[in-house]
Design a protein around this nucleic acid. Structure first.
Lengths: 232, 232
DNA sequence: CGTAACCTTGATTAAGATCAATTCTCGTGG
DNA sequence: CCACGAGAATTGATCTTAATCAAGGTTACG
């Protein structure tokens, strides 16, 4: 793996080459194929991950096997870093578990595992990493706030919110085209519904000429209607 | 107000008397009556709050006026601290908004407002405040993860989860009695439903002798049934 | 007491989940 | 290059849950 990827990780942007080297030499690269579990929420916590290539979903599973996706994670972003700061002593003794499940969404998904003890070592000498961590956690909190809000307001609304946010993120804002980064199944789970209902909802939007869907490519034909849907 | 309350705030537990004094002298005590808004999510962010007395709810409002409670906050806990770490420059210029709305739930709710600039001053000299902050945010993240999971699984389940968690928190674990800290309206909103549905759900549990409800007092008669409900 | 806020109840409606088939898509091997 | 098959996506019919609408009851407190 190219070591320089570490420099692109926002968390580590203030570190010098020695420190990066230290992280690099103490961490493990892990590869996963599509559908492979990275960790279960029942499993002892031993560190957090950085996505290098591919993508990952973080989700909960209810006892009946239904899954609820909480986050999607893409390259240079971290996940499962929050537990580091709860119950230090338990973490060290590996008596703490991961807060949710995670699965690779693509073949050849590459991750770096940063073990807790390695990270604590780095943190001690670089107090301002904690500021970056705070910033990262804050963003996740804000995201979850919004997510809670959106899933509790119906499928159409949740879908409209998702589409508009994706459009926002994609460079093609003018072209009004978005390319889904995830499967429709995962999208359904993310907006709090099931495959069939998502399918029907997409169909409804298409019938009203709001969007047009071809595989993972979605044209936004009437952004204004989506915006109106969001505002109910 | 008794200054010593600041010592009970976990965030400040490492500070010396000078620093506490500094915070105290630079912060504002605010009082609210039940139902009064503390801030709106449209409002410029100028600092975070500590609950001294009373209680507070954090919630989102959809355009049709429906509210969704995200958190309840009780004495010695902080709220709205996450934005401090997003976009420092914007915060300073007060170009950032609060992430949600907040309202006092009781008469004579007393809060301390810690202004952003005051806090940045303290933070600079006390790097390990940031570790406490991280710990606080991590807990909130974990809480939201669980909350998302529970609200997307039906009212009975959400209610069962809430009741069990309250039982866990209350000292009376053996007596199997819980005293609701919040109104039924807020509880309904918190578990993602409306008053009528919550009422019916409570009734259903009572008919099955799982609980008995008298005002805000709830006896848990068959904890095992609640646990089974959670596991579906 | 009286009134307002809070809570409960019943009847109805709407949204979405479930179940059961198909159809579509795409990678693989013949 | 085509045929096959598995996984993904769609469709229809039905069922369940919870939201809505509209009254009533209760409770707390001045």
């Amino acid at each position: 793996m190219d070591k320089s990827i570490l420099k692109k990780v926002n968390l580590f942007s203030d570190l010098n080459d020695d420190e990066l080297e230290k992280i690099y030499s103490h961490s493990t690269i892990k590869k996963f194929n599509k559908g492979e579990m990275i960790f279960f929420e029942t499993e002892p916590y031993n560190g957090f991950y950085i996505v290098i290539e591919g993508s990952v979903k973080i989700f909960k599973i209810s006892k009946d096997g239904r899954e609820h996706v909480i986050h999607f994670i893409f390259p240079t972003n971290t996940f499962a870093e929050a537990p580091l700061f709860e119950q230090y002593d338990k973490i060290i003794r590996e008596e703490f578990t991961y807060p949710a499940n995670s699965m690779a969404l693509e073949d050849d998904t590459k991750l770096i595992l940063i073990r807790s003890d390695v990270f604590y070592g780095i943190l001690e000498k670089n107090k301002n990493i904690s500021l970056k961590m705070l910033s990262g956690l804050s963003k996740k909190l804000r995201h979850l706030n919004n997510h809670i809000d959106s899933i509790s307001q119906g499928v159409s609304k949740g879908l409209a919110i998702y589409l508009l946010k994706e459009l926002e993120k994609s460079g093609n804002k003018d072209k009004n085209i978005i390319e889904l980064q995830i499967s429709k199944h995962d999208l359904a789970s993310y907006i709090g519904t099931i495959d069939e209902t998502l399918s029907r909802c997409l169909k409804k939007f298409q019938e009203n000429k709001v969007i047009s869907v071809k595989g993972k490519t979605i044209h936004i034909l009437q952004k204004s209607v989506l915006e109106k849907t969001v505002k109910l």
